[in-house]
Design a protein around this nucleic acid. Structure first.
Lengths: 339, 339
DNA sequence: TTTAGCACTCTTCTTTTTTTAGTGCTAAAT
DNA sequence: ATTTAGCACTAAAAAAAGAAGAGTGCTAAA
């Protein structure tokens, strides 16, 4: 891979990103000051190396997955964010009243809007949350709402209908017992300790302990299963990309983008590193025709992930610079808040 | 419209619903024991009346919007729900532990699954909710979570980062003042009364009243703007219908189905009646190519709407019977709960 | 090493032809 | 007064054929 070859591959990738059309040799000669035949010879080498491929024998070339990978690792310039992109995000961070988590959500909405890709914010992974407090509020003679709050500020609530004979005072008393015994317990262990430690206690003190136990058991279970916040913006934006011009393909992808659990799974960043990560095509584990770019973030001691889903032919440079910009701004705000 | 003509229209509508293909005269003669020419004569009349139309001069007929309307109003049999459909919903209501609102959500998921249409549950229209209680819980030295609860059991929470110098005790004191003064206030009037009545009071008692006032003001505002629950199931199910075989059409509809606010608006049932309502094509105000069927429900003193969005060529009978079944079950559970 | 030249391959677009499903109308039959 | 058989006619969809275009690979000369 000498310099010219690198430049050629870079040019092919970037042209294809811009036009979505296979790149032919003739279109490139002016840029490289040589004949199309020379370009063709070089292209043949790049094809042997597996970086580019063609749809059929006489078409122009498109980057292969390893071509894109080579591009993002060696060729892409870590260009600064463009002025107009920056402007739009700046406005969000200019508002100091805005909580950081809301700022991130807003940023990702904007990114989806300006880039026509799907963007995702995964926050509140309650996994390592601890129980801080459980409140019970009576709504009427036979309805109560149980509110569970964790140390990271995640709150879930559940309304319960109880029979008229159930004593609401007893429910509240039970909540006090739980607060005394279980505060600080990791939220996914609460159900277990509730059964083993709390149930025997309330059995003695509470008349209708069975019914009441079930209320809290359900409330905590609901917490664990519901408590993840996913924001998906512009789910259908990706369809505007010219490669999605086939009904079957469109339906296939639309279905996948419907499945929040699946998106959550592939977008979630469990790794330790703090870098921007790029998953191209098959690597994405979401769909062979998309690329996912994602970045972990930390605010208030909680982890989250922001991610962008676009076609493999996505504007890597732009997305990377946008995500980096958000990260910078986040850091400077955190310093400002003295964290 | 004599009997034969009614039967003919019914047959045309139902055949088209089943096959999605224009219905020709020949296919109908066996059912009516006459020649195709006779059918053609009758069809010409139905066309003059505006109940059926053809795509081009030599195609079979498809029902027009007024044809569908005539069908649902005069021809459709109020058939009982089929056994297999009933079975699936029965399982949900069999579980007496399940809160009714969760049961409805589950039912609509099932309906979307078994019918391949999009289904919607609109609940929690906090419009006529009253403030029941506001709680503040400290998470750390500079973070608090404010939890707002209404008399109907709607709960929203918001995390606030405050500067180290803000006294959390003062925040909690403010929440107590609010609880004393504003409990029972309709939720959408709370912000106003907070400004006019509460602000002057806390100005005297609370040192950092400006910052703290803003926290509560934001929390209530968030409540009003966030607090509507919309569940949309199978957003892309409708694409499985054979009429959606055109990329442009698909994108158009996919975009509309992305817009939760818009769906909420068209699905919401503000009218007084308690009947199942059917909006065909243009009537839907959502999209000329879809039908929306919806039904109001009441549980625990709150209104909600369930709705199904499908092609105009949707299985009216089936959806109506499914929604009726849910309504029946709801009623019997409410009696059981003594409401 | 580069380049001009040329045959060759596929795709895409346009046009033409064929097939098919259905109609409307007329005139005869019931 | 209906119903029906018969037939000419239409439009769409499918298949076939032709023409144009974009791009390649290879060879041989520069």
């Amino acid at each position: 891979m000498d310099e010219r070859r690198n430049n050629l591959l870079k040019e092919i990738v970037e042209t294809y990103i811009k036009t979505a059309k296979p790149v032919g040799s003739k279109a490139l000669c002016s840029k490289f000051d040589c004949s199309s035949a020379t370009i063709r010879n070089e292209m043949a080498v790049l094809e042997d190396l597996g970086y580019i491929e063609k749809n059929h024998i006489s078409s122009g070339r498109i980057p292969s997955e390893s071509g894109y990978r080579y591009y993002v690792e060696h060729l892409m310039e870590a260009e600064k964010i463009t002025g107009s992109d920056m402007l739009k995000l700046q406005q969000i961070f200019a508002n100091n009243e805005l909580e950081l988590s809301d700022a991130i959500t807003k940023c990702m909405e904007i990114i989806s809007d300006i880039t026509n890709y799907t963007s995702i914010v995964l926050g509140k992974s309650s996994a390592d949350n601890m129980l801080l407090q459980v409140n019970v509020i009576a709504l009427s003679a036979n309805q109560v709402v149980a509110i569970v709050c964790t140390d990271k500020g995640n709150v879930e609530n559940k309304v319960f209908t109880v029979s008229e004979t159930t004593n609401i005072a007893e429910i509240i008393k039970t909540s006090e017992i739980i607060n005394k015994m279980l505060v600080g317990t990791p939220i996914n262990e609460v159900s277990e300790r509730l059964e083993i430690e709390v149930k025997p206690i309330i059995k003695k003190q509470i008349r209708q302990y069975e019914t009441i136990y079930n209320i809290f058991y359900d409330a905590f279970n609901d917490f664990v299963s519901n408590n993840s916040s996913v924001h998906i913006n512009g789910r259908t934006k990706i369809f505007e990309q010219p490669e999605y011009n086939d009904v079957a393909e469109l339906k296939r992808l639309a279905n996948k983008l419907e499945d929040v659990k699946f998106i959550e799974k592939v977008a979630k960043d469990n790794e330790d590193e703090n870098e921007i990560k790029i998953y191209i095509g098959e690597e994405s584990e979401f769909d062979p025709n998309v690329t996912i770019i994602r970045k972990k973030y930390h605010i208030n001691g909680e982890d989250g992930t922001i991610a962008v889903i676009g076609p493999k032919r996505m504007d890597y440079q732009r997305i990377v610079s946008l995500l980096e910009y958000i990260d910078e701004k986040l850091d400077s705000r955190k310093e400002q808040n003295g964290e």
